[in-house]
């Protein structure tokens, strides 16, 4: 398991805590259900807090608390469950979340480019080799057709720019 944050290998500084586990000292990521049940106590702790969201859970329900959350971990129980792609975009574009959005679970190297486009900034990958290939995989495409949370200029915008320059 390797963590990449903002494109670089990073040290894990959050403890992933299950629904029944005792809370350790320091930064933790807790399941959304536990967050709902223990919200006051969790927010009162003097340590960074993250929430893990499963694909069927609605990020909108967290909207009021987002400024107080350091990490939103969006889970991929299987790589093919793509609901978190929409959750990430909603967090960035609709709910204005500025903190870390982390992909956790069955995260494949070949999905990272799309994940980064919809707003993920951290990735827990299963293979160290996949982490090493991060820069390579991010460089595979130099152009994009669709606007997304990464605000990359799209092909449509570049064409429009070229037209304006030509006038």
């Amino acid at each position: 398991m390797a963590l990449i944050r903002h494109g670089l290998p990073a040290r894990e500084d959050f403890a992933a805590v299950g629904s029944e586990d005792a809370l350790p000292e320091g930064a933790v990521i807790v399941p959304f259900a536990r967050y709902r049940a223990e919200r006051e106590a969790l927010l009162a702790r003097n340590a960074p807090l993250g929430v893990r969201i499963e694909p069927g859970e609605r990020v909108e329900e967290l909207s009021d608390d987002l400024p107080r959350l350091a990490v939103i971990a969006l889970a991929f129980p299987q790589f093919k469950d793509g609901r978190a792609f929409s959750s990430a975009r909603l967090l960035r574009e609709r709910l204005g979340y500025k903190g870390e959005i982390r992909a956790v679970g069955n995260v494949l190297r070949d999905q990272i480019f799309f994940m980064s486009r919809v707003g993920f900034t951290a990735f827990e990958v299963e293979k160290d080799k996949d982490a090493a290939a991060f820069a390579e995989t991010m460089a595979e495409f130099s152009q994009v057709y669709q606007p997304s949370s990464d605000r990359r200029p799209t092909v449509l915008a570049l064409r429009q720019g070229a037209r304006m320059a030509a006038e």
Binding site: G82, Q111, F113, F114, V144, Y145
Partner: peptide, 9 residues
């Protein structure tokens, strides 16, 4: 083509 949100429907 390569829609980042809708490639794992």
């Amino acid at each position: 083509t390569f829609h980042p949100e809708f490639s794992y429907l």
